[in-house]
Design a protein around this nucleic acid. Structure first.
Lengths: 225, 225
DNA sequence: GGTTCCATACTACCATACAAGTATGGGAGT
DNA sequence: ACTCCCATACTTGTATGGTAGTATGGAACC
């Protein structure tokens, strides 16, 4: 667990890719930041080849924009793509949580409960970073329990823009308690197999994250397209 | 210079990527085919670098499997991923066709109608390849008309396995007339804004494509995981 | 002052050489 | 005949030099 922080996984290319992705999604590398193969290769102490490989992968996910012979930049947040990602997640999460109400492995249900406890602790510690990770983890467990983990991975690819706005909003207005409460209610609904109830909460949960996008565009105009 | 590049989308890397992807999805390169950077670079008359770049992108989409220091091969079709892709498409296409029944640009509606005409002609010509393309195009127009083209692109990434089974099934049982009829009925439902009707047809349309996956696994066992 | 042109310093793209891991086939030893 | 070992020919991973396209700043000119 600690080792992956130092040397994430396998090849140098994968390492650079994972580190850059984490830095971009966490806004440590703000939208619009210009990168370059050479500069990045120096920073990570590898050659340009694995850096270039990571750029290709990041570009495919829309996290960076490569302009041939001109440069590479962290992509700006595109409001339309944010809305699309939210739409996509709403549809799929609704369907998944409904599946979960029909059948959900006992072990995964326990994992959800454990995750909820961790969320409560993270909120008490005011640990936003951990809280965000646990939020992601909660939904991942949902998909995994329904044997739809591949779907979750695909969602992740489009979530680049969506997640960054979520982080921005949580900077301006930490509303972890509400998110926690929604997670808890979803857990109960699944446990009691109340599909309609679960789907309704999930819908609110998803729409919550998008409500005031205009506010964010005004507060952080340089981050948006 | 290089007239053989019929679709020279910019860089050599992109060219190789597009060509390989097309060959893989169309089963021209069957699942399990082993590739190699060197061999491919010779075939496309480029160096290993752009080939490697294309491999990275294809691997990210799950179209090829790269085993470090061992080789690269076209990925086998994974039944679970096929089912997941179908699930994903069903949820998203249902939601989109419902949106379309609420509001759909006149111009896009005309595009659908034109597409239907082309489908009929392709069926008469027994042009399976064109028919498949028109099928894809039909659904793409749907997403595009609802301003969800980004969603369609993400779907495409997971569709690698799903599409290959669809092609396999169409090899064994060409049922273009039924697909055309479903497309036509969806078009009518959208035009008359009958959301429930449209959603129902779309659901049947999606489930049709998956019905007899066991038959395919028996007929083409070497293509499946 | 304002415009044009060009040297320069970038950039990503590509080709190539080398490094390191892996499968394989043949020969030595038993 | 069978096992083990190792040379060898693969594979992908990495480093690096060169190429072509692009932005930029300053000089020359109007």
């Amino acid at each position: 667990m600690d080792d992956r922080m130092l040397q994430p996984s396998g090849s140098a290319g994968s390492m650079v890719y994972q580190r850059l992705k984490q830095q971009i999604v966490s806004l440590e590398l703000p939208p619009g930041t210009s990168l370059s193969e050479k500069e990045t290769s120096l920073a990570f102490e590898v050659s340009r080849t694995p850096v270039r490989e990571s750029f290709v992968r990041l570009a495919q996910e829309g996290l960076v924009l490569v302009l041939p012979q001109r440069g590479t930049r962290v992509s700006l947040i595109d409001s339309e793509q944010v809305e699309e990602a939210r739409f996509m997640r709403e549809q799929l999460e609704k369907a998944v949580v409904r599946l979960a109400c029909g059948a959900f492995p006992e072990e995964r249900l326990a994992a959800l409960e454990h995750n909820l406890e961790q969320q409560r602790e993270a909120i008490q510690r005011q640990d936003s970073k951990n809280m965000f990770e646990l939020d992601e983890e909660f939904h991942r467990i949902l998909f995994d329990g329904c044997r739809k983990s591949g779907t979750w991975n695909v969602i992740q690819q489009m979530n680049a823009h969506f997640n960054r706005t979520r982080i921005l909003w949580l900077w301006t207005d930490p509303h972890w308690e509400l998110l926690y409460e929604q997670h808890r209610q979803m857990f109960l609904a699944i446990k009691q197999q109340q599909a309609d109830q679960a789907e309704r909460i999930m819908m609110e949960h998803m729409r919550l994250s998008i409500a005031n996008l205009p506010v964010l565009k005004e507060r952080y105009p340089e981050y948006f397209k």
